[in-house]
């Protein structure tokens, strides 16, 4: 373990996306964002759709969008199991807006509960993506 650093790991079902030592990670937990510094108390949490902020020094070095998953935090490690993950800079705003409109149409047109749930989940993810882009450009 590097001194004063957190081992940050981001894994998707397809592959290991990141594994390195960083100074701080902010994870969008199911019950609200939480920051992970070295020596954090062991924690298991769900992750909602949102942005993971990776800090090196005092600067944000990476903004990574995740569409939900799980996070495991131990004293020296922060592992995020994400369903979908991509750097915020790679989000295609036009396509995402289209996705959001499609999802909303699907919600309106859904005939069963499970269809509606699936569509509203998609809408939530698209909305979180747009929010992520908006926040990263205004800051």
């Amino acid at each position: 373990m590097a001194d004063g650093k957190v081992e940050f790991e981001l894994v998707s079902p397809e592959r290991l996306l990141a594994s390195r030592a960083v100074d701080m990670v902010i994870v969008p937990g199911g019950d609200g964002d939480f920051g992970v510094l070295p020596g954090h108390a062991p924690l298991l949490s769900t992750v909602r759709a949102g942005v993971i902020l990776v800090y090196e020094g005092r600067e944000v070095s990476d903004r990574i969008f995740v569409a939900g998953g799980f996070a495991e935090v131990t004293r020296e490690r922060c592992t995020v199991l994400a369903e979908v993950a991509m750097p915020v800079s790679e989000i295609d705003t036009g396509k995402t807006e289209q996705d959001l409109r499609d999802a909303r149409d699907d919600i309106a047109g859904a005939t069963t509960d499970s269809d509606r749930d699936a569509a509203s989940r998609r809408a939530d993810i698209a909305q979180a993506k747009l929010e992520a882009v908006r926040r990263s450009t205004t800051h």
């Binding site: 079902p13 937990g29 199911g30 019950d31 939480f34 108390a41 062991p42 924690l43 298991l44 949490s45 769900t46 799980f70 131990t74 004293r75 020296e76 490690r77």
Partner: peptide, 28 residues
């Protein structure tokens, strides 16, 4: 990882995480 005998905290709760994790585990 040395948890030093410490137990995990759960957010939102053990049951809620499990309810998410178990179906996911089947897929994985």
């Amino acid at each position: 990882d040395d948890l030093g005998g410490a137990v995990y905290e759960y957010e939102p709760s053990e049951e809620a995480i499990l309810a998410d994790l178990l179906p996911r585990n089947v897929s994985v």
